[in-house]
C-alpha cells in the first residue's frame, strides 16, 4: 500500500480540496504513514463477521406525512455569501 502524487491529487480532487505542492508532499508522507498503520487491521480475521453499520439497534422511527413551514426564505438565505431574488448564487455551472 503506497500513496503517490497522482493518488493524492486524485483524492484531493474528489474531496474538492485545493492543495499546494508543499501540502501534497506532506500529505503523501502522512497518508502513507496513517494507511500503513491502519493496515494492521488486515491481520484481523473477519471471515463470517457481519459489518457493524451502527451501534444503534432500535428500529427506525418514522414520521407522519405532514408538511410544515418552519423557516422563511430570508432565514434560509441569511448566511449565504451570495444570493439574489430568493436564490443562492454560484458561478455559472456548465453542463
Amino acid at each position: 500500500m503506497s500513496i503517490d502524487n497522482s493518488t493524492v491529487k486524485k483524492v484531493a480532487k474528489l474531496a474538492r480540496i485545493e492543495i499546494n505542492e508543499e501540502e501534497e508532499t506532506t500529505l503523501i508522507t502522512e497518508l502513507n504513514n496513517i494507511l500503513g498503520w491502519v493496515d494492521e487491521l488486515k491481520q484481523v480475521n473477519t471471515d463470517s463477521v457481519e459489518p457493524m453499520l451502527s451501534v444503534f439497534n432500535e428500529s427506525m422511527q418514522m414520521r407522519e406525512d405532514k408538511a410544515e413551514s418552519n423557516f422563511e426564505n430570508s432565514q434560509i438565505l441569511d448566511n449565504s455569501p451570495e444570493s439574489n431574488s430568493g436564490f443562492f448564487v454560484v458561478p455559472k455551472v456548465v453542463e
Binding site: 422511527q61 414520521r63 406525512d65 408538511a67 413551514s69 418552519n70 423557516f71 426564505n73 434560509i76 436564490f87
Partner: peptide, 29 residues
C-alpha cells in the same frame, strides 16, 4: 417536513436537511 408543493417561490419550502445546514438530521416519512 418541508412541503412538496410545485411552483412556489424559490427556497420557501426548505427545511434544515434540504439545505444541508450544520447539525441537520434526516427523519424518514
Amino acid at each position: 417536513v418541508a412541503s412538496t408543493n410545485w411552483g412556489s417561490d424559490p427556497n420557501t419550502q426548505v427545511e434544515l436537511v434540504d439545505c444541508g445546514m450544520p447539525g441537520a438530521l434526516p427523519v424518514i416519512n
